[in-house]
Nucleic acid binder design. Structure first.
Lengths: 241, 241
DNA sequence: AAGGGCGTAAATGTATACAAAAAGCAGGCG
DNA sequence: CGCCTGCTTTTTGTATACATTTACGCCCTT
């Protein structure tokens, strides 16, 4: 599947990965010519990519026009997760209020069944599958209300710096109650889905917020576990203090 | 105050205004060379501006790379307003939960007092002042939680296509209960502010959502009033059906 | 007359050139 | 020893050139 993608798109992905992997020190100022040469492209598509990362919040534009890598406090990231829960909660509520299509219902059931198998696999937890299905579940709910705007903004909220639901899963492998935590999350997935199909909008929203709160709790565990674990979480390196 | 701004920023504002004023027909495909010449700039800064408008949702990027003016259904715009209420509501709730600074409290009181004067002016409603102060009030609440991320996302939610609280005020002048509607909104402003200072987060959030619901109701009135009134609302021209 | 193919014209994506502004640095001065 | 000043170097912002791709209209065919 030769997905032909443009230079600025490649640059966007590479730059984002570089930032999230902590390849720049926090607050580092970027040089367009230097980056362009490193990426093997000209400044034009690089600037496009940088502009998008500014929109995402991973880069900050200084008054002079230069860009620097943004740094976040723990509180900032907690806020981003909170906001993600709020926006996703709205999607869940609207889905419940408006009702969902049979196709969505079926796909939700399938994903949940697969997630069940992933968290209680006989040979231990199938981590990679869980991360992938978890993302699919959340995306499905974002699309349920049938609104392009809702879907787009949920997508954005998910990409708020370090608010990604699967971001912190990366570091959880070494956390004590890791498997239990994912089973708990999966329980929440089922509850959210049932609230949606049961047309309980308020409940669906509240449950989705609770789900985000679990993500925040997990982050706290990762941070407590120390830098050796925190280092496994992409982007956690650029947190200031 | 000679605010020196770059070409791409001028282009951004001009293009956004052109789109919102309905200067292009819905789904019109834009030509970079043509627009660049019309704006008197080269394609480079124009492309920057267009990329940002794609992010905002006012333009859509086609698979071929071309851009077209986005068109929205009424439902899309209702969703955008709903989402704005949700995000602003979160700002209000967090402000209440965390408490606000004395400076914020004082500024809120001042704005509310000025708004009171604007809605009950002896020589009739001071409309222009109301629009300006209303924007200040909402921005103040966005900044109250003291979180850069919250402030940024509220700002964004406000700019979601046609979700701006003051967008529909433009068309209300010819709507029957216009003044009464603004007095009602002002009552809500006071209630929201009091909920925040009273540390009632849940109530503050609910009130802010209710406030957004009023905006949606106003939009419905504008639409019912017919095209002569709807034409006064910037951007309403790009609604499909 | 309708449909398809081809050629021309125009659009985008990228690279590069250049001017204005900013940053850094060396040296002198207080 | 620190700080300011002027110069050099770099960086950003913009324009422009060019190649590749896409759109469009015309003509030919059936």
């Amino acid at each position: 599947m030769g997905e032909r993608l443009s230079q600025h798109e490649r640059a966007l992905r590479e730059l984002r990965a570089m930032i999230l992997q902590g390849r720049f020190e926090a607050n580092a100022r970027l040089s367009e010519p230097a980056l362009a040469e490193e990426l093997g492209i000209s400044r034009t598509p690089l600037r496009q990519a940088m502009a998008r990362l500014v929109e995402e919040g991973l880069l900050e534009r200084l008054d002079t026009g230069r860009c620097r890598v943004a740094s976040f406090t723990i509180e900032d990231i907690f806020d981003a997760i909170e906001l993600r829960g709020v926006v996703e909660g709205t999607a869940a509520r609207l889905a419940a209020e408006r009702g969902i299509s049979a196709a969505h219902a079926r796909e939700g059931q399938e994903i949940l069944a697969s997630l069940d198998r992933a968290v209680s696999a006989p040979g231990g937890l199938d981590f990679e599958t869980y991360v992938r299905l978890n993302a699919r579940f959340h995306r499905l709910i974002a699309e349920m209300p049938g609104s392009a705007i809702i879907a787009r903004e949920v997508e954005r909220a998910t990409r708020l710096p370090l608010a990604s639901p699967s971001a912190f899963l990366q570091g959880q492998e070494t956390v004590p109650d890791f498997a239990a935590s994912l089973r708990h999350a999966q329980t929440q997935h089922r509850a959210i889905f049932e609230a949606i199909t049961g047309r309980e909008g308020t409940r669906a929203e509240a449950l989705m917020r609770e789900h985000a709160r679990l993500a925040r709790q997990n982050l706290r565990h990762v941070l407590k576990a120390g830098p050796s674990v925190a280092g496994k979480v992409p982007g956690l390196a650029l947190i200031s203090n």
